[in-house]
Design a binder for these strands. Structure first.
Lengths: 145, 145
DNA sequence: TATTGTTATACTCTATAACTATA
DNA sequence: TATAGTTATAGAGTATAACAATA
């Protein structure tokens, strides 16, 4: 029960929770839920993509995705366009308003995080990333199995 | 927009998402939701605590907490006892069944994670923790402000 | 007056499965 | 038959505010 690695995992979880707490505060200020922001952030700076692709990237299942997209469409933040290539498929992209919101919210969430790293130099970034990359490789390898 | 630190944050998020994906699979196998497991894990190996304390530790607000506790109480996994010291307060603790579930699920979630760190030696743990501790300090300092 | 916990309300997300329309 | 997306359903979490009992 007192596994050596637990301390690492606890730290990782605490970092992540702290991050999410901060970022969700920003997100909610713009009347977005975390999943809605996830969609906006995924569509931001792209020409758009199919529901399928969007679901794969955000890990939101298709039934849920329809609901989240509906709410964002009602807010005029995105639009759905039926594809001509494959008429089963629907192309989703941000409207001008959605793009503008993305450009407003995203940098704020980013700026929030930026402060946390204010005193990091290049070497410290490199060290942190080396550790996290190693860990991520283990996780990805496991997920594939 | 291409901040240096974004790569670190993205890695951190990916690690955490991977972890949660794995751990939630275990949790759901026991018919628990993530918030429910959060409560069970917080109460595990303690004598119990007040709703107030439980809410503070899990970051679940009191209105929500009542609902989550109700569902766990219906499953006979925890019990509520009105405190005699302060009769506004309610003491929550795991039942024998709840404790047993904790002792079953928690090690499984733990074992899952343990595999990820199979090839870590003491120095690698120390390096990872040093990085995460530094980051956590920044986050906590910010949250307090 | 302030605090602990419950209740009430309204919304969102979630999983699941049946369904429509295309391919 | 298989795939893309919608609809339907039921359950669970969330924020918020009003409320009861107690301090």
């Amino acid at each position: 029960m007192t596994e050596r690695y637990l301390r690492s995992v606890r730290l990782l979880a605490q970092c992540m929770q702290g991050f999410e707490r901060h970022s969700n505060e920003h997100v909610r200020r713009f009347d977005l839920t975390p999943p809605q922001f996830d969609i906006i952030a995924t569509l931001g700076n792209t020409e758009g993509m199919s529901c399928k692709e969007l679901g794969d990237k955000t890990l939101i299942t298709k039934g849920t995705l329809t609901g989240v997209l509906n709410r964002l469409e009602e807010k005029k933040l995105l639009e759905r366009i039926r594809s001509n290539d494959d008429r089963r498929s629907i192309f989703v992209r941000l409207t001008a308003a959605g793009q503008q919101l993305f450009e407003t919210v995203f940098p704020q969430v980013i700026a929030e995080g930026k402060l946390l790293f204010a005193d990091y130099d290049e070497q410290q970034f490199a060290e942190l990333e080396q550790q996290l990359t190693r860990l991520k490789q283990r996780i990805d390898a496991k997920g594939a199995a």
